[in-house]
Amino acid sequence: MTKTNTVLATIVKEKARVENSIEREGAIKKNVENTEAVLEHIAELVEANTPLPEDSNFTSYEEWENFLNKRLKAFNSSLETIAKQKDLLSAYEYYITNNPVV
């Protein structure tokens, strides 16, 4: 196997890995929407002075909001990574197209 074929095989594997990662984008966007909706709901509960349910996993609304904000930050970080992976995917496709197996 030539050096070009070895590199091409590696790029084809990486392309598949990146495509799998990009497929998660829709689910992550949905998680962002859901998390933002819950944060809005918490703000409404706080404004209405609604007590935190006794069976809550959190000791306060502030703790719950902090937890959700951390998750939101992680989701947004994942979306940024996916945006970079889309650029990589374009580069991989370009390389594969312009370097056929010999």
Rank of each mutant, 00 (worst) to 15 (best):
M1F: 03
M1D: 08
M1C: 11
V7I: 14
L8E: 00
A9F: 05
I11Y: 00
I11L: 14
E14L: 15
A16H: 08
A16T: 11
A16M: 12
R17V: 02
V18N: 07
V18W: 02
E23G: 03
E23W: 01
R24K: 08
R24V: 03
R24T: 04
E25G: 00
G26P: 02
A27I: 09
I28W: 01
K29H: 09
K30G: 08
N31V: 07
V32P: 00
E33G: 03
T35I: 14
A37Q: 15
A37L: 12
V38C: 03
L39E: 04
E40D: 14
H41G: 12
I42F: 03
E44Q: 15
L45G: 01
V46S: 02
V46R: 05
A48Q: 13
T50E: 13
P51Y: 09
P51F: 04
P51W: 02
P51S: 08
L52S: 01
P53R: 08
P53K: 02
E54H: 05
S56A: 11
N57T: 08
F58D: 00
F58N: 00
T59Q: 12
Y61C: 02
W64M: 11
F67E: 13
L68Y: 09
N69P: 00
N69Q: 09
L72E: 10
K73Y: 10
A74I: 15
F75S: 00
N76M: 06
N76D: 08
S77R: 09
L79S: 01
L79K: 01
E80H: 04
E80K: 06
E80C: 09
E80R: 06
T81F: 00
T81M: 08
T81V: 13
I82K: 06
A83S: 12
A83I: 09
D87V: 12
D87W: 03
L88W: 00
L88H: 05
S90V: 10
S90R: 13
S90E: 15
S90H: 09
A91Y: 04
Y92E: 01
Y92S: 01
Y94W: 04
Y95Q: 12
N98V: 12
N98D: 13
N98C: 09
P100W: 03
P100Y: 03
V102L: 07
V102W: 02
